[in-house]
Amino acid sequence: MPEGDTVWQAARRLHDALAGKVLTLSDFRVPRFATVDLTGRTVLDVTPRGKHLLARVEGGLTVHSHLRMDGSWKVFAPGQRWSGGPAHQIRVVLGTADRTAVGYRLPVLEVLRTADEQRAVGHLGPDLLGPDWDAARARDNLRADPARPLGEALLDQRNLAGIGNVYKCELCFLLGVTPWLPVGELPADRAAQLPALARRLLEANRERPVRRTTGVRGQDLFVYGRAPRPCLRCGTSVRVADQGDGSRDRPTYWCPTCQSGPAPHPGGLRGSGRRR
């Protein structure tokens, strides 16, 4: 699933391509909205909300989409060959006189009244890259279930919106705790630091083509995707194991030396390791 900074970048590309322009092409290739025609309407803006994209058009309508694991939006100039996947994966095409936006493999795509956007995104917590950001509210949301593993709580978009699996792992590393540590056992100083740290990471990366949490070019991430290579801080082999709430397990990376707290038994690891 994409991170909030990836969705922010997608929204900006779509906004730059479509906002303020009249749609000359509108082609929804999902049965529920196949008869919707937005041609002749001006695109007002394209706004990210957590991991959701809201393209608002004249007449009080919003095209709501979510990328999840495989979805993407591509923008093409006139005459440019479309290159986001085979034609049968296209879910929607929105075009103006000088740009065409093509949505590939979008698992969530709907047209709703702009006044009803809360039906689609009202469940989300404070948006790390949005104008509604509220660090205190995000912290309270995370603390509401103190027994829940921190990694799972961070991925729950109802607590704070925008964190994906990469930032989950990197945040836990920077806080010095494993993703399996119950939220209620996170030391008070680090619990207070967490929302601001998460926002700082996403803000620093929303303009970058390559995500970086280390501040060192060529060594972009501390632990995510690095197993079994050495930890950049201590040299211990980075570990990886699945973490999830039962609906979907995600590969989770951590350093058993730099991060304290519970971790899977060796039999639950994707690579060799020990419980800390």
Rank of each mutant, 00 (worst) to 15 (best):
P2F: 07
W8V: 04
A11F: 09
L14K: 13
D16N: 13
A17T: 07
G20C: 09
L23K: 00
D27L: 04
V30M: 05
R32E: 12
L38G: 04
G50I: 10
G50N: 05
K51I: 11
H52K: 10
V57M: 07
G59W: 01
L61F: 02
L61Y: 05
R68A: 15
M69A: 13
D70H: 14
W73Y: 10
P78N: 01
P78K: 00
Q80N: 00
G84E: 14
H88T: 08
I90G: 08
I90M: 11
T100K: 05
A101S: 10
A101E: 11
Y104D: 08
Y104F: 15
L109E: 03
L112K: 04
L112N: 03
R113A: 14
T114I: 04
D116E: 12
R119T: 10
A120F: 04
L129P: 13
D134T: 02
D134Y: 05
A135P: 11
A135C: 07
A136Y: 05
A138R: 12
R139L: 15
D145S: 11
P146D: 12
A147H: 13
A153S: 14
Q157H: 05
Q157N: 08
L160E: 11
L160S: 13
A161I: 09
A161M: 09
A161E: 03
I163L: 15
V166I: 15
K168C: 14
P182A: 08
G184H: 03
Q193D: 15
L194E: 02
A198W: 00
R206Q: 03
R208L: 00
V210Q: 00
R212A: 12
T214G: 04
V216L: 13
V216P: 03
L221Q: 11
V223H: 14
G225P: 04
G225C: 01
R226Y: 07
R226K: 11
P228L: 11
P228E: 11
S237W: 10
S237A: 15
S247Q: 13
R248H: 08
R248T: 05
P251R: 12
W254M: 07
C255P: 03
C258I: 05
H265Y: 06
G271P: 02
S272F: 10
